[in-house]
Amino acid sequence: MFSWEDTWVLVISLFVLLPLITIIHQLGHAFFVWIFGGKTRLVIGTGKPLFSIGPVEIRRIYFWHAFNQFEKIEHDTTAARVLIYLGGPLFNLLSIFVVNGLIMSGVMDEHMFWYYFAYFSVYYMFFALFPARYSKDQPSDSMAIYDLLKYGKSKDPLE
């Protein structure tokens, strides 16, 4: 049952945890773009830009949405693009294993924050791997892979 005492969990989840999980996800995509010799621009949030640090732009509504724009991949193959699209969910999964490993080894204490971190990471991975179009021009990661394999390219206009 949800009560007023649970409100802090909701606030932390929306304004800290989900943005952190989103950044981890986007770093997964960026990592594989970098591995295959491409350049990427990471945009966190929507609305007017607040500031930029190198290829990272933080926007006013930082907790809602994020995307990578990449271009000119040096080793541009179908396998490379599949790994780029899978990079986000892979990093989310890896982050769960790292957190659980640190807790199991005693480096970090068990805390509800880490439970919610794992829970929302799985949630994020589910929707990234569910083949759907969030809008006309925004496929999920698995839908981008489907488009790539079926049409030889992604229909993602952010590339």
Score class of each variant (00 low, 15 high):
89 P>A: 05
99 V>L: 07
89 P>T: 01
109 D>Q: 10
72 K>F: 05
26 Q>G: 06
98 V>N: 05
109 D>A: 11
53 I>T: 05
93 L>C: 11
55 P>D: 07
23 I>S: 01
126 F>C: 12
72 K>S: 11
133 R>E: 09
92 N>Y: 07
90 L>P: 07
120 F>E: 01
82 V>I: 15
63 F>N: 06
4 W>R: 10
22 T>S: 09
44 I>L: 15
76 D>G: 07
31 F>E: 00
76 D>P: 05
80 A>Y: 10
74 E>Q: 14
88 G>D: 04
14 L>A: 12
69 Q>D: 11
30 A>D: 02
127 F>C: 07
52 S>E: 12
28 G>M: 12
84 I>Q: 02
71 E>Q: 11
3 S>Y: 08
85 Y>A: 13
40 T>K: 01
87 G>D: 04
78 T>D: 00
66 A>S: 09
77 T>Q: 06
54 G>N: 02
55 P>N: 13
73 I>C: 05
104 M>G: 02
94 L>I: 14
35 I>K: 10
120 F>G: 01
26 Q>F: 06
13 S>M: 03
31 F>S: 08
50 L>Y: 11
60 R>Y: 15
50 L>P: 13
14 L>M: 14
13 S>N: 13
130 F>R: 05
66 A>C: 02
69 Q>A: 10
107 V>P: 00
32 F>C: 02
122 V>M: 03
68 N>I: 15
84 I>V: 09
69 Q>H: 14
46 T>I: 15
83 L>Y: 09
80 A>C: 09
82 V>S: 06
126 F>L: 14
74 E>N: 13
6 D>R: 04
13 S>P: 04
133 R>I: 05
28 G>P: 06
58 I>G: 03
119 Y>V: 12
28 G>F: 11
18 L>I: 15
23 I>R: 00
51 F>H: 07
10 L>T: 11
95 S>K: 08
18 L>G: 01
88 G>A: 03
74 E>H: 12
10 L>F: 14
88 G>R: 04
110 E>T: 10
68 N>Q: 11
123 Y>W: 15
94 L>N: 03
84 I>N: 01
58 I>A: 04
124 Y>T: 14
4 W>L: 14
41 R>N: 12
32 F>E: 03
22 T>Y: 00
12 I>Q: 04
57 E>V: 14
17 L>A: 01
37 G>T: 13
81 R>Y: 05
33 V>C: 03
54 G>V: 07
21 I>R: 04
78 T>H: 00
56 V>L: 14
23 I>N: 00
56 V>T: 11
42 L>G: 08
90 L>S: 10
102 L>G: 10
27 L>P: 01
58 I>S: 04
9 V>P: 00
22 T>W: 00
17 L>M: 13
23 I>M: 07
118 A>G: 13
94 L>Y: 04
36 F>K: 03
122 V>Q: 01
73 I>G: 02
131 P>A: 03
8 W>Q: 08
10 L>S: 10
92 N>P: 01
38 G>N: 04
33 V>T: 04
66 A>G: 15
94 L>T: 13
71 E>K: 12
14 L>Y: 10
117 F>T: 05
89 P>F: 11
48 K>D: 08
120 F>P: 00
19 P>S: 06
14 L>Q: 06
82 V>Y: 06
17 L>C: 02
74 E>W: 09
122 V>L: 09
16 V>P: 01
95 S>I: 12
103 I>T: 02
73 I>M: 15
76 D>K: 13
111 H>G: 03
100 N>I: 13
16 V>Q: 00
29 H>P: 02
